[in-house]
Design a protein around this nucleic acid. Sequence first.
DNA 1: GCGCTTATCGCAC
DNA 2: GTGCGATAAGCGC
Length: 107
Amino acid sequence: MTNLAKQTYALLRKVPRGRVTTYKALADALGVKAYRAIGQILKHNPDAPNTPCHRVVASDGTIGGFMGQSSGAAIQKKIQMLQNEGIKIKGGKILQFNHVLFTFPTS
DNA sequence: GCGCTTATCGCAC
DNA sequence: GTGCGATAAGCGC
């Protein structure tokens, strides 16, 4: 496990329930520009139940992808999980995205 | 306003 | 060493 992945998971674990973050937020918080790399890391997800990869969405508020798929039943399940946390999703996108979006302190 | 292309970085094989 | 990816942002039409 590389330091980046470790940091990514660490930040993800800091995201409180009912909140979501974006790949950009994670990458920016880590000081890297590898937005796509973040997706790779989350997809590898070594601690699935402990790493809320389903709380990570695209910068547009869209779900983005889940379980290595950009669309499919997995995505709908992800949406269901988020909705279960109190997040409203419609048409595959998060409603009040700005309200549920969780950003990390830049220090 | 919508769509497409380019740029970037890390991870896996 | 090379290829791929769950993105983001910018430019063009």
